[in-house]
Design a protein around this nucleic acid. Structure first.
Lengths: 161, 161
DNA sequence: ACGTTTGTGGGTAAAAGTGGGTAGAATTCC
DNA sequence: GGAATTCTACCCACTTTTACCCACAAACGT
């Protein structure tokens, strides 16, 4: 096993939690997720826009792998520069305080349409922060595509281990 | 992890910030970016024209790698000399003061079309300084190429880490 | 039941962002 | 060459924002 694999074992996030954003824009990170975060990350997540309309938190270790891929793009190509810009510009490192909270940037709060209540969802290697109604809408949107979900399951689990 | 990758961890810039140019042509560097800049750079960035119509700031360490590549070009080929000239002629070392500001050269301010307000964008290994409307125009320019951007995603994230 | 952890609220000192003054260096002009 | 002028690095001042701390009630585990 490579050292890199070992580091990542801790960073496994699951479960769904309801929390509240306080007046200062801070939000609690579930204790279980704080414990799951590898200490090498120094209590720090990279927050950015999700592909879905929510906020995504990556352990810095995971983000560094994303950043490394962005650096591998050809800087002479305008489209590649734009691609990097659109990912990097919304990303910000957030370290949680001794109460276990992070302060979400206003831009990301707007993007996710977050008010006072939020849902925090574990996504194995990262975490999603949703406005509760949006999450529900998203769920409904896929409720009539259950067959497709089965297909994805088939695809994933038929892969060689 | 190679030594070169390790160096880059410190000089990793993200996020986008709105700042103002003061009457003396000075602009603040976001605190998070100042902290991200490796101390070996002695609070100094190399500023030059970007390939896009904005100002680009490189940590001197990163600039030195660019300079090394330019040196490796064939000095007997006119096109190569022209390429080197256009990068080198506008480059200037800028050290930020104890308030965290750098003084932007007038030539670069003109090139980027900067007035009072600017957007500072992290690009992982370097920083861009944009006139806000130009950045928006640039974004719109790529709005109809979402498929191409998805293609980039597929290409780089399907590769093994 | 009781001590401990967790989630939430809020106060305060420090840091960040912005504006402007000034003295010495560099430049210009007679 | 020397005086006048511009430039620039450095400093001080002010306002806003952030980071850090204390507090407390609810939930949890034993």
């Amino acid at each position: 096993m490579r050292a890199n694999d070992l580091e990542t074992i801790g960073n496994s996030f699951t479960g769904s939690y309801s929390y509240t954003l306080d007046a200062k824009g801070r939000i609690n990170i579930p204790a279980k997720m704080r414990k799951a975060l590898n200490p090498a990350n120094d209590r720090t997540f990279m927050a950015t826009r999700g592909a879905d309309p929510c906020i995504v938190l990556y352990p810095v270790e995971v983000w560094q792998q994303i950043a490394a891929k962005l650096l591998s793009l050809n800087k002479r190509r305008a489209l590649h520069r734009h691609y990097t810009r659109n990912i990097a510009r919304y990303a910000e490192a957030l370290q949680y305080d001794h109460q276990g909270r992070i302060a979400l940037p206003a831009g990301l709060i707007d993007y996710a349409g977050i008010g006072k209540n939020v849902k925090i969802v574990g996504m194995i290697d990262h975490i999603e922060i949703w406005e509760p109604e949006r999450l529900e809408e998203s769920d409904n949107q896929y409720a009539d595509q259950l067959d497709d979900l089965d297909t994805i399951s088939d695809e994933i689990f038929s892969l060689p281990l």
